[in-house]
Structure formats: structure tokens, C-alpha cells
Computed example of a mutant assay.
Amino acid sequence: MADYAERRRTMVDTQVRPSDVTSFPVLDAMLTIPREAFVPDARRDLAYAGAPVDLTATRQLMEARSIAKILQALDLQPGDLVLEIAPGLGYTTALLASLTDAVVAVEEDATLAAEAEAALSSQEIDNAAVLHAPLTAGSAKNAPYDAIVIFGGVAQMPQALIDQLKEGGRIMAVFMQGALGEARLGRKIDGAISWRVEFNATAPVLPGFERVAGFVF
């Protein structure tokens, strides 16, 4: 039987810490949350490899390095309410739940949403809810959020999500331009988002987040 606890330690020591991740809460979460419980059974042996893990034909779980750097950049606090877009099978949701007060995760793939709920329940994570809804719609009824995070690629950020962010709140995603991408952190100031680049990263662009004709970022 695989020693997944040892694999988690190796992941943190060889993939996460060398990437300048020093946040103790983030490191502790990644040492604690069993990544293998949130990937398809057939890919459990790949859960701790230093690469994305395919969840479906079009969806991936990001590599640990990028996830950890996004979490550190967001500087989440215990009292935060977080909106997560496209949680997949719930690994990043579990990490967010360990760092904050509550997580609302929106997943438009009905199968992924149901399996994410089951995986979170199996780990006794009770401060996160997975809603089956369009990714670009978010969840306005639970807004405003202290932070919004997309562990995936976007070409543009829908205004509907920006509207759900609290004034002074943080938002983060991987902005893709062709094959190249940047993880950008935004802050809402006077109703508008001020973005800055945190690090280079790549991720498939999620459905609904493609660039539309005439859009200029």
C-alpha cells in the first residue's frame, strides 16, 4: 500500500518549499489534506507527481507548486469567506476550508460537483459547500466575498464575479495568453480591480472564461 503521508511530505519538501512558499498555514494544510482523496481512483499514483493531474478530458488539478503559491499570495485569514470557481474534485476546496471560515465552491460539471461533495464529506470538511451552477455566474446570494480564487486558466474575468468581491477583497487566477500564463492577484479598490503579476503559470482556460472578440485586457 502506498505511503501517502510520506508522499505528501516529499511533495512539500521538493515542490512547495523550494518555490519560496513559507506560509506555515499553507504548508500545514498541504501536509494535512490528502491530495490522493481528490483525484480519480485510477490516477491516485500520480497525485503527488510534480505535474497537473487530469480529472476529466478537459479539466485538471493544478500542480502543488502553483496551488501553494496562489494560496500564499491570497494571504487568507481564518475569518474569510471565499468563493472558489471550478473546484474539480475538491482538493483546493479542502485546502481553502482549512485556512478560512467558509468556502462556497461553484462547479458546473454535475458529476464533478457530486464527487467533490462526497470527497469533502469523507474528509469531514463541513465548512465548504459545492454548488452546481455555471462557473461564470459565481454565487451572488452568498456575496460579498473576502476572496475569490480560480485554480485554473482564464482569458478574461467576468464582471459578475468582480461584482461579488467585497471592497478591498482579493481575487486570483491564471491569465492565459496562448500557451503562456501569469498568476495575477487583484484587489478591489473603488469598485475596480487593480492587478499585479505574482508568478508565471499555465492552466487550461476554463469554459466560459475564453476571450471574446473585441475584449481588451
Rank of each mutant, 00 (worst) to 15 (best):
A183Q: 02
D163C: 12
I67F: 00
L165T: 00
D41W: 11
L55K: 07
D190T: 12
I193T: 00
A86S: 05
D54H: 14
L46E: 13
W195R: 03
L206D: 01
V82R: 03
D146E: 13
A29H: 05
M176D: 13
D75W: 08
H132G: 06
V12T: 15
N200W: 11
G152S: 07
T136R: 13
Y91F: 14
M157R: 03
L71M: 06
K69T: 07
F217E: 15
P207T: 02
R187C: 03
A57S: 14
W195C: 04
S194A: 15
T202W: 04
Q177T: 07
D75L: 11
A5S: 08
L83D: 09
G168T: 02
A118G: 09
H132D: 06
E107A: 05
E84S: 08
G168W: 00
P134K: 00
S139G: 04
A160V: 12
N127G: 01
A37W: 04
P134H: 01
T93C: 07
R8L: 11
G50S: 07
E182C: 04
A49Q: 07
G191M: 00
L71P: 04
L76D: 06
A203D: 12
E36V: 10
L81K: 12
Y4R: 00
V216F: 08
E117R: 15
Y48R: 03
A86P: 02
A160K: 07
D163P: 04
A133R: 13
L112F: 10
A118P: 11
I85S: 03
A133D: 12
I193L: 06
L135K: 09
D101T: 08
R9G: 12
R7D: 13
A113Y: 01
F38R: 05
